[in-house]
Design a protein around this nucleic acid. Sequence first.
DNA 1: CTAGGATCCTGTCAGC
DNA 2: TGCTGACAGGATCCTA
Length: 282
Amino acid sequence: MPELPEVETIKMGLEKYLVGHRVEKIEVRLKKILSGGEEHLVGGKIIAVRRFAKVLCLDFDNGYSALMHLKMTGQPIYRGPNLKTPTHLSEKIVGGLPGIHTHVVFHLDRGGNFYFNDFRRFGWIKVVKTQELKGDVFVGKLGPEPLRDLTEEMFEQIVSKTKKSIKVLLMDQTKIGGVGNIYANDALFLAGIHPKRAANSLDQNETLNLFKSIEKVLKDGIKYGGASEHAYVTSEGLEGRYQEHFLVYDRAGLPCPNDCGEKIQKTNLGGRGTYFCPKCQK
DNA sequence: CTAGGATCCTGTCAGC
DNA sequence: TGCTGACAGGATCCTA
């Protein structure tokens, strides 16, 4: 599922392909996906692509923006001029492109198309005035982001203020922006902290260690172009490679990467699959 | 305040 | 082989 590194990878691609292009027509095939009125975007030129935690944002020259949340299976894909491998597409794009799971199509000038695919239909696109972005019910409530504005001091504050389990806290978008299940699991492993620990039970050393571990796994995620273990593909429709570097995520029953002799265990926390090494994570 | 369950959806996979 | 049912998961909402 697309988290900060995946959305950042997509963002960099879309920046390359969409900026400077005008939207000639928008096809909304599934109404519930797009709210706020696609008509505001038609005729507008895309002047910037931004990312707020896991949310993508296309800014138009007419004062409107399109916010996009991919949830688990959203796939924003560009097809058209400038692509190095225009014919190649990942098998993770189920139903073809455009296909049965293509819910919104942005027709661009110069023959490009921007597709929003989502076979689970949880993702959304919201059209808002650029000036009112921060008032959006989702974007406005996002917490500070690692690798951007989350400092060690802020992290210590956030962690010390709750007895919620540390993993659930890491994934709470209103507290910390951008971290999802994959990177929360791997960061906790790297820091040697058990996912069920109460956040406020971490000492200063553990908190600092976790802060650095989060930055490390997110940077690795970006370095490898994101994790394509489920539906994630880049804006070119290609796969990332972080799944080849998972530490504990999705590795139940496999040996601990520290070679401690234990096997990775899977449990459930906050309704999410949670992976950890019972020996290395205290 | 916190924990846990239900909800939205459909591809995938285990079990028969 | 083919069908059925359980399951996963980001975020929200509801109940305990």
